[in-house]
């Protein structure tokens, strides 16, 4: 059976199209299986958040679906105990990270784009990209050493006469939020700048030439050509950043935090890890993780909606 489309062409039926494209569908099967098995099947484990899961010898699925159903008990415990402190730490670290790490790669990319010396451009790009490949174990030790009482930063501030007593950065909770934000920015700035650089490389050179002829200065060309053109990329990365606002980090907090500032360093991920994995409270850890996923999903959808209204461009 065929139908006629608006442009007058005959459109084949769904069945006929499926038969025509059978090889493409066959090629798709591994991908679909992969998504189902790797992405969706593990989601059955979310049911654990509503049960009192205890592993036994009967197999994972048997234990999961025969565990005692406890409803929202774990969520209620979380909200009644540590929710306030954990959310405060998570949001404070995230907003500070967003404040630094969102504009930093844009500024870096624009500045790199304006550099005349190709050698210098490549050097800065490589140097700023390198921290992305350093593991958090090493990065955390670098920060711990540099910011220790006898570390480089204290030595520098003392020799410049900016401070009279050494600052114990890892003994004061609020400092920790700033340290994490700066560390996150330092580590991710170079990587994110590449995405913006690739967007900038797609800008038509004629636009810059025309603006130069019209007498536009370098700053004006950045403001009126570069930034508006990469706006869709900025929007998409902003949506992703907002979606990940509750994923403020895990290894960095775990490696750089200490008990003296635990009430400032403990965030959703470290909390779920400490209770869920380290202490074997699987159901409670899953409940905390599920809460985070739900809030992140709502945040992504909201950011996407707002961006679509403001910019005419959105992720989906």
């Amino acid at each position: 059976m065929t139908t006629v489309t608006s442009d007058g062409k005959k459109k084949k039926s769904l069945k006929a199209r499926l038969i025509d494209q059978k090889y493409l569908f066959l090629l798709m099967i591994p991908g679909v299986i992969w998504v189902l098995v790797i992405c969706y099947a593990p989601m059955t484990g979310l049911y654990m958040a509503f049960t009192n899961y205890r592993p036994s010898q009967n197999g994972y699925f048997y234990d999961l679906f025969n565990a005692k159903f406890v409803g929202l008990q774990w969520f209620e415990y979380f909200f009644s105990k540590d929710f306030g402190m954990i959310m405060r730490n998570t949001l404070a670290t995230s907003f500070l990270t967003l404040l630094f790490s969102f504009p930093a790669p844009i500024i870096l990319a624009v500045m790199l784009n304006e550099l005349r010396s190709v050698k210098m451009k490549k050097f800065i790009q490589t140097a700023s990209y390198l921290p992305y490949f350093i593991s958090w174990v090493i990065a955390a030790n670098i920060f711990l050493t540099f910011l220790s009482g006898g570390g480089l930063i204290n030595d520098l501030l003392m020799s410049l006469g900016l401070i009279k007593e050494r600052i114990l950065f890892f003994q004061h909770g609020p400092y920790f939020w700033w340290i994490i934000a700066i560390a996150n920015t330092w580590k991710g700035m170079g990587y994110n700048a590449i995405i913006y650089l690739s967007a900038i490389s797609g800008i038509d050179e004629q636009l810059y030439e025309a603006a130069s002829i019209d007498g536009a200065s370098r700053v004006k060309r950045i403001w009126h050509i570069t930034l508006p053109t990469i706006r869709p990329t900025i929007s998409i990365l902003l949506i992703l950043a907002i979606g990940g606002i509750l994923s403020t980090g895990f290894e960095q907090q775990l490696l750089m935090g200490n008990n003296a500032i635990l009430n400032y360093s403990d965030v959703l991920d470290t909390y779920a890890y400490r209770y869920g994995l380290a202490k074997g409270m699987y159901s409670y850890g899953t409940a905390v993780g599920l809460f985070k996923s739900i809030v992140s999903f709502i945040l992504v959808m909201s950011a996407n909606k707002i961006t679509a209204k403001l910019n005419d461009s959105a992720l989906f």
Binding site: N52, R54, Y77, Y284
Partner: peptide
């Protein structure tokens, strides 16, 4: 130990101690 309310409470008590001791 394990996934019980007592185990959760115990960890909560220890968390408080760990924060206040230093």
């Amino acid at each position: 130990a394990g996934s019980t309310l007592e185990a959760l409470m115990y960890q909560g008590v220890i968390d408080v101690f760990d924060q206040y001791y230093p």
